[in-house]
Amino acid sequence: DESNKPILLPNESQSFERSVQLLDQIPSYDTHKIAVLYVGEGQSNSELAILSNEHGSYRYTEFLTGLGRLIELKDCQPDKVYLGGLDVCGEDGQFTYCWHDDIMQAVFHIATLMPTKDVDKHRCDKKRHLGNDFVSIVYNDSGEDFKLGTIKGQFNFVHVIVTPLDYECNLVSLQCRKDMEGLVDTSVAKIVSDRNLPFVARQMALHANMASQVHHSRSNPTDIYPSKWIARLRHIKRLRQRICEEAAYSNPSLPLVHPPSHSKAPAQTPAEPTPGYEVGQRKRLISSVEDFTE
């Protein structure tokens, strides 16, 4: 099969070098950035008060330690540790928490760990991170309901609301924008112990962030949302095809390698009803078989 044979790379090609550099910018793992907010007593309706908090309760602090690993920003190499735009020179604080497994990295933009500057009256330095995160974990210690939209931002799609209760338990629920209701189930609340709260809140936030990324990708319907490693695979396959075309153009005697095509017509299947918005969006999480067989 010609399409699977190794090909020689061009010795000097600026377009090839640019493509390789672009490939280096696509990590081999999925990345997520999640905002974390603490809401104190009497702050449920005040964005400024929430963003001005420099610490929270003892249970909130224990919750943070379970979310991930504490890292010092100045020691991080952005090409190895995903920071979601946090500055490593102290502009966004000294520490944050991050978490990773074999296929993804997540960083938490924690408002109480970011510096509260006197010259920044409206807390814009914090909002440029927190307001651009799709998902926020809100530790609501106010005793009042927290409403979506209290923290203004164009991309605040989903809130994971943590409400501490007695007996070391917590109520965990989801809020989302109306255009996200087909992807996020907000109907079920959970009672979770303090011990298990970081794991549950983190998983709910990661799932909500993946759904938000799919939702946000609708602005470019021709580019369905893939995982990062599938995006790398697609980029490599496009690069291979372009090299083959350039080689055939410079030397017409060489065969032009095309991806294999299936001449056999697909079997006719009964027509199915058109899937609704929710089903269609969830299918976009699934990769096409052509990603692996071309």
Rank of each mutant, 00 (worst) to 15 (best):
R238M: 12
V138E: 00
W99L: 03
D87C: 05
V20Y: 07
Y58R: 08
R232K: 06
A201H: 00
Q105M: 12
F146S: 01
V162Q: 01
N220Y: 06
D185C: 04
H216M: 08
N45S: 10
H262G: 14
T222L: 06
V289A: 13
G68I: 05
G68L: 04
D79V: 03
M204D: 03
V138R: 00
D194E: 03
L9W: 10
V184P: 02
L197M: 05
I34R: 01
V135G: 00
G131D: 15
A208N: 02
G149C: 08
K117P: 11
L197H: 00
G149R: 04
L285I: 09
G66H: 03
D179M: 04
T222K: 14
V135M: 00
G85H: 04
N45W: 02
L233G: 12
Y38T: 00
I103T: 15
G42R: 04
V200L: 05
Q21T: 10
L206G: 00
T116S: 14
I50R: 02
L171G: 02
E47H: 03
E245S: 05
A205L: 01
G40P: 02
K237P: 07
K5M: 15
L183K: 03
D125H: 15
I230H: 06
L73G: 12
D30R: 04
Q21C: 07
Y60D: 00
V158A: 09
L239H: 09
P270H: 11
P164W: 00
D75R: 13
S136V: 14
Q203H: 06
M180W: 02
E168W: 03
Q241C: 04
Q94P: 10
F155S: 14
K33P: 04
F16Y: 10
Q25S: 11
A265L: 08
S13K: 06
V36E: 00
N170M: 02
S19P: 05
R234A: 11
E17Y: 07
L256R: 12
G85C: 05
Y225V: 13
C176S: 04
A189W: 14
D141R: 00
A189V: 15
Q154T: 15
D125Y: 13
D102H: 08
K147Y: 08
A106L: 12
T274L: 09
L130K: 03
K147P: 11
S57T: 03
S263A: 12
R282I: 08
L113A: 04
V39D: 00
H258A: 14
Y29M: 08
K178R: 10
V135I: 01
K264Q: 14
Y277K: 15
E181A: 07
V81Q: 15
Q203S: 05
L130V: 12
C76Y: 13
Y58F: 09
L239C: 07
R59T: 00
A247V: 10
A201V: 10
H262A: 14
S212T: 04
Q25Y: 06
T163Y: 03
L148D: 10
I110D: 03
I7V: 11
P226R: 06
P221M: 04
S217Q: 09
F292P: 13
T269V: 12
V289Q: 13
E294M: 08
E272P: 09
I137L: 03
A271W: 08
S136I: 05
F134P: 02
Y29Q: 05
T31K: 13
H258S: 14
S136N: 03
D79L: 04
C176R: 02
S288K: 11
L64V: 05
T186I: 06
R69F: 13
R18K: 11
K237R: 09
L183V: 10
A49L: 07
S46G: 02
G84L: 04
A271E: 12
A265E: 12
T96Q: 09
F199K: 02
S46W: 02
T186S: 08
H129Y: 14
P221Q: 05
V39G: 00
M204F: 02
N251W: 11
S187W: 02
Y249L: 14
L73I: 13
T150W: 04
R123V: 14
K147L: 08
N251R: 11
S19F: 14
Q14K: 10
G42L: 02
D24N: 06
C169M: 04
I230Y: 04
P252F: 09
T61G: 11
Q21L: 07
V279A: 13
A271H: 11
G143E: 03
F16M: 10
D141Q: 02
E54H: 05
I7M: 08
S173I: 04
L86P: 12
E278C: 09
L183D: 05
L37N: 02
S46N: 14
K121V: 14
H235L: 12
L73K: 13
L254W: 13
E168M: 05
R195G: 09
C124H: 15
S44H: 10
M114S: 05
G93S: 13
S3I: 10
G182E: 06
F155I: 04
R232G: 13
I230M: 06
K228G: 14
E91W: 05
Y58L: 07
C169R: 03
D145W: 02
L86K: 12
W99I: 02
Q25I: 04
R59Y: 00
N170W: 00
Q241R: 07
D87P: 08
I224N: 08
I7S: 07
R128N: 06
E12T: 05
A211H: 12
C176K: 02
N11F: 06
C89S: 13
P115M: 03
A271I: 11
N4V: 14
R218G: 08
T163S: 05
N170L: 01
R69L: 06
R59E: 00
D24R: 04
D79Y: 03
Y38G: 01
D194S: 01
A231Q: 14
N11H: 13
N11T: 12
T186G: 06
R18E: 15
S173T: 08
P255A: 08
G90L: 05
D30I: 04
L239A: 08
E278R: 08
S46F: 02
G131T: 15
L67P: 00
N140S: 00
Q14I: 10
A231M: 08
R282G: 11
F146G: 00
E290D: 10
K264P: 11
D102I: 04
V119P: 08
A211T: 04
R232L: 05
N53H: 01
E294I: 04
W229A: 12
V257I: 06
M204Y: 03
F134A: 02
E181M: 11
T293P: 12
P273L: 11
P115V: 04
E144C: 09
P255V: 11
D30C: 05
C244P: 12
D75V: 05
Y58H: 06
E72H: 09
P255K: 09
E245Q: 09
D291Y: 13
N156P: 13
V160A: 01
Q175D: 08
V184M: 11
D185T: 03
C124W: 15
A271G: 09
L197G: 01
D1N: 12
C98M: 09
D118K: 15
A265F: 07
D87Q: 09
G143Q: 05
L256K: 15
G143H: 06
R123M: 15
N11P: 10
E278D: 10
T269G: 10
L23N: 09
H215T: 06
T112P: 03
L206S: 01
D166A: 04
T293I: 03
G153D: 08
S19Q: 15
